[in-house]
Computed example of a mutant assay.
Amino acid sequence: MSNNPGSVPANLNGDGIRVGVVQARFNQEITDGLWRACCSELLRLGVLNEDILHVTVPGAMELPITLQRLAQSGEFDVLVALGCVIKGDTYHFEIVCGESARGISTVAMDNDVPIVNMVLTTYTEDQAIERIEDKGLDAARCAVEMGNLMMTLDDNLPGLSGEEADE
């Protein structure tokens, strides 16, 4: 706990956190590894199996629309995007990376739901493989921390809890 009375400490207790995970299947060996590491860590942090929804989509470009549908459902405290885009010989890499990231950020902001963007964007397959375990764990930890942070802010900031609407 910080000595600063105005700080909100990181909370990695997953009890009660509802998580939606959308995984792109393109580069599936890599994204399956991200999912396994992420799911394992979510469970280790105390997120209940029944509080995790895992869906897959064809590729990184399909992540934002799927995340939007989950965000609009109101069923999740936090969402996670898992994917892998490896640079090829054409400009397609830049388009997919940029548009996917833009879409994910837009969905988070428009729906007031934190989204952990763990879409690996690497130059080589070896770089992606090297990152699978660490980034999968990071995705889970960030998801739990952000889910808790949003609930803490909702409970402690005036105007966010809905209490003022009754006045």
Rank of each mutant, 00 (worst) to 15 (best):
K87H: 14
I30D: 04
P9Y: 04
P64I: 08
A128P: 08
S105R: 12
E62C: 06
T31L: 09
G14R: 02
T124W: 04
C84P: 09
C97Q: 07
C39N: 14
L82Q: 06
M118I: 01
D77E: 03
M146C: 02
I86G: 03
D155N: 15
V78G: 10
V144Y: 04
G159Q: 11
L53S: 05
G98I: 00
S100Y: 07
G46Y: 02
A165H: 15
R36G: 00
N111K: 00
Q28K: 15
S161C: 01
Q68F: 00
G6Y: 15
D112Q: 00
S40R: 01
V116E: 12
G59V: 02
G59T: 00
V8Y: 14
D77Q: 04
A24M: 10
V78I: 11
L12K: 06
S7W: 04
C84D: 09
I104E: 06
N148M: 12
G159C: 09
R69D: 10
S161K: 11
I95L: 15
G83M: 08
C39Y: 13
D154G: 07
V85E: 13
S40Y: 00
G159D: 07
F93N: 01
A24H: 11
A24P: 12
L82I: 08
A24N: 11
I104H: 04
A37G: 00
T124G: 05
W35P: 02
Q127W: 01
K135N: 14
G33C: 01
F76L: 03
Y123T: 07
E130G: 12
E41T: 15
L63V: 03
V116R: 13
E164M: 12
D126M: 14
I52F: 12
Y91A: 13
G136Y: 02
I17F: 11
I95K: 11
A101D: 08
D166W: 14
L160M: 11
G88F: 04
R69G: 07
E50V: 02
E125M: 08
D51S: 11
L149W: 03
S73Q: 03
L149E: 04
A81I: 01
G159M: 09
D154F: 07
C39P: 00
L82N: 09
S100V: 07
M109Q: 09
F76G: 03
D126T: 15
E62Q: 14
D126F: 10
G74R: 08
L48C: 02
V113Q: 01
L137T: 15
L53A: 07
T122K: 10
P64Q: 07
L153C: 13
G33D: 06
E130D: 15
N3V: 05
M1V: 13
S105G: 14
A128K: 05
C38I: 06
G88R: 02
V57I: 01
V80S: 00
T66C: 10
A81Y: 00
T124C: 04
V80E: 02
M61F: 14
L70D: 02
A143L: 08
L79W: 04
L82V: 09
A165C: 12
P9T: 10
W35F: 15
V107I: 06
V8H: 10
E50K: 12
S2H: 04
M1T: 12
D32A: 15
P114I: 13
L160S: 02
A139S: 05
D155T: 12
D166E: 14
L67K: 10
V107E: 01
T122L: 09
I95P: 03
E75C: 00
T106H: 06
L42Q: 01
G159K: 10
E164R: 13
V116L: 13
I115H: 09
